[in-house]
């Protein structure tokens, strides 16, 4: 059975050989996440019913709520009920917003993901470009500049950069859009397709909305990119620098291969660690972008999570953890797949 499966696997092209088993692994991993989110919340001290109703609640009210929440059943019965609810897309009702948690998340998650998406593109562009130029032209202006930047980027907090950018480009120069949310208050949101305003606006063909959404994205995206590109740049510098000094690069040069082709080949060889760090940054930003989200009144996932914690909004928190964990699982899955696709030496 197992050998038959293996033989079948070896008939597939390499990329499918890599992707399929990992997709199969996703299901048990997701189950693990469900398990952990459920029990983590249960481990919190105190009776959820008391927490929900507050200290002034009568014992009768608490008992009633316990009954309604199913807290009197055994923990396993509760877990199964929870799993069933999650599978049906029911993450409970947020105590604070009184919306279903799913509805809240569907609104908040795309806001943060859109921000992270564009920030990552800019981060990779800045980080790789600076790293490559500084390695290829050592001692040049870029080389010196990147050293200063690398030092500064690690030391300056993101909210400070965000505030400076707002101060200069919005308050003083008036070039940038206002830091009040994802879209001009006068415009209505584009119809929901992906939740990314830029893409939804394009789909709807509404260029006014697209312009506004893109303008609003500009400063927070730059803020996140400036902070995170420093780490990526330093990492790329060291990896790419090593590849750049390797014998095969020298040999390509001795064979008369043009410099730009050599740079591309060397960059291809430096990709695995770059992919890892980008994947890590994406997962990290999901929660860590909260300061930038707050400054720009973004209404994103991070803000939602912080609110949930402040208000002891357990269903919301549980929902956030679940979505964040699922997202990170997917990101790492993509990282793993890319990693193996990029380096043929990794055995499938």
């Amino acid at each position: 059975m197992l050998t038959g499966l293996r033989r079948f696997q070896q008939m597939l092209p390499r990329s499918l050989q890599i992707i399929l088993p990992r997709l199969l692994l996703l299901a048990p991993q997701m189950f693990g996440v469900l398990f952990v989110t459920f029990f983590l919340i249960r481990l919190l001290p105190g009776d959820p019913a008391v927490l929900l109703l507050g200290n002034m609640a009568t014992p009768e009210a608490v008992a009633q709520l316990r009954e309604r929440l199913g807290l009197n059943d055994s923990i396993w019965v509760q877990f199964i009920a929870y799993c069933r609810n999650v599978l049906h897309g029911d993450l409970g009702i947020s105590i604070f917003t009184s919306h279903p948690v799913l509805t809240d998340l569907m609104e908040r998650a795309p806001a943060t993901l859109e921000l992270i998406f564009y920030a990552m593109i800019l981060t990779v562009a800045i980080g790789l470009l600076l790293a490559v130029v500084s390695v290829v032209r050592p001692g040049g202006f870029t080389d010196v500049a990147t050293r200063i930047y690398g030092l500064a980027a690690g030391a300056i907090p993101d909210f400070w950069i965000g505030l400076i950018l707002i101060f200069v480009f919005f308050s003083k120069l008036g070039w940038a859009a206002a830091p009040f949310g994802r879209i001009d208050a006068m415009l209505s949101e584009p119809p929901y397709v992906t939740g990314f305003y830029t893409i939804d606006a394009l789909v709807a063909g509404d260029f006014g909305v697209l312009h506004s959404a893109a303008g609003r994205l500009l400063l927070p995206v730059i803020t996140l990119a400036v902070v995170n590109a420093g780490a990526l740049m330093k990492m790329t510098q060291s990896v790419f620098g090593k590849v750049w000094a390797s014998p095969f690069v020298r040999h390509a040069r001795a064979s008369g291969v043009p410099e730009r082709v050599i740079i591309r080949a060397a960059l291809r060889n430096s990709l695995p660690p770059i992919i890892t760090i980008v994947g890590f940054l994406v997962g990290f930003l999901l929660g860590a972008a909260v300061l930038v989200e707050t400054i720009f009144s973004w209404g994103g996932l991070g803000q939602y999570a912080v609110q949930a914690v402040m208000n002891s909004d357990y269903p919301a928190l549980q929902g956030f953890i679940l979505v964040a964990a699922a997202f990170i699982l997917v990101v790492y899955l993509i990282v793993d797949i890319l990693y193996e696709l990029v380096d043929p030496r990794i055995r499938v």
Binding site: F248, H251, A254, S255, A265, N269, D343, P344, R345
Partner: peptide, 16 residues
Amino acid sequence: VALIGTNAKELLDPVV
């Protein structure tokens, strides 16, 4: 003028 170097495995791009 073309070069043939020592230790050929290191002279080849490992991911191509």
